[in-house]
């Protein structure tokens, strides 16, 4: 073996310490889609908290409900709404992909293709929903 060609200690900087703890695991499409699925799932869960709370106000007092809903009528909440839709659409279609991986005999072998389908459908739907969801805010910000 050619190991003898390098002199002992040649150019070594042994003992050099760096601050890094460990590397992030470099998973591929499957791992990152799982991470995205988790994150979108948690986001949807927190939205449901707020949603159950504000909807339950209907039983308490209609005017209180109206005033809470009125606080949502601003561009920031509108953009958050668009973000929520993005999370739900991804979570829904990736959920179908996971079901396919588990129950379709060819699912696991085609998981990457399925993921690109999910991303493709997500892009198309989000582009299509851009104006319908954000029309109010766009009018308010750009005034046309």
């Amino acid at each position: 073996m050619a190991t003898t060609t390098s002199g002992a200690g040649a150019g070594s900087r042994a003992g050099k310490r760096s601050g890094k703890k460990g590397t992030l695991y470099r998973g591929r499409e499957g791992m990152w889609s799982w991470v995205a699925h988790r994150i979108t799932g948690v986001l949807i869960f927190f939205f449901l908290f707020a949603h159950v709370l504000d909807a339950s106000l209907l039983r308490v007092s209609q005017s209180d409900y109206n005033s809470v809903i009125d606080t949502y009528k601003n561009p920031i909440t509108n953009f958050l709404e668009y973000g929520l839709t993005a999370a739900i659409v991804f979570h829904a279609f990736n959920g179908l992909r996971i079901i396919a991986v588990d129950f379709w005999a060819k699912g696991a072998r085609n998981q990457k293709k399925l993921l690109w389908w999910v991303v493709g459908v997500w892009v198309v739907l989000m582009a299509g929903m851009f104006y319908p969801i954000l029309a109010h805010s766009l009018h308010r910000i750009f005034g046309y």
């Binding site: 050619a2 390098s6 200690g9 040649a10 070594s12 900087r13």
Partner: peptide, 25 residues
Amino acid sequence: WDEWQVQALPTWRILDALHEIKWEQ
């Protein structure tokens, strides 16, 4: 974390580099 510099061939395996460190450095 420790760091070493090793003279290696592109066709070496990482195991060869680790051997090089263990045996020579």
